[in-house]
């Protein structure tokens, strides 16, 4: 599945929810399902700065593809991160760095990209793209 196909799939899933609570319960559930990182990988090096809650992001390459693992203290952030990983993980660095992440706005979560939230979703996206650029051959 391409990055955009996964984004469209998520948008479709969110169309089922008619109130905010259902939407957030789903995100919270995604947060709970995210595997997270073992304690030894929650290092200063992997931490994403500028977040109200701490977020850790790790990347590794298998063949031509880049994979992400992440964790956070806050469950909603974790749910959002789960979706980002679902969209971006397992693609080539080139596809990741060029991706237009329109699904965030379409599912009504763009406020989480706003600076005031300081929850690091924007920093997270930036860091994922930085990894992709770093791994681009």
């Amino acid at each position: 599945m391409t990055i955009n196909e996964t984004q469209d799939e998520i948008i479709e899933e969110f169309e089922l929810f008619d109130d905010w609570a259902d939407k957030y319960e789903y995100i919270i559930d995604l947060g709970k399902k995210l595997k997270g990182l073992p304690e030894e990988q929650k290092t200063e090096e992997n931490i994403i700065k500028g977040c109200q809650s701490r977020v850790w992001l790790n990347a590794h390459q298998e063949g031509e593809k880049l994979f992400f693992e992440a964790d956070s203290e806050a469950i909603i952030v974790k749910g959002l991160v789960n979706m980002l990983i679902r969209v971006l993980s397992g693609h080539t660095p080139k596809d990741i760095s060029e991706a237009d992440l329109y699904f965030i706005d379409k599912i009504g979560m763009s406020s989480h990209l706003a600076q005031t939230r300081s929850n690091g979703l924007a920093s997270m996206v930036k860091q994922m793209k930085n990894y992709a650029i770093a791994y681009t051959p």
Partner: peptide, 8 residues
């Protein structure tokens, strides 16, 4: 986490 409380 306090951030989850704030968002909700």
């Amino acid at each position: 986490h306090h951030q989850d409380i704030g968002v909700l």
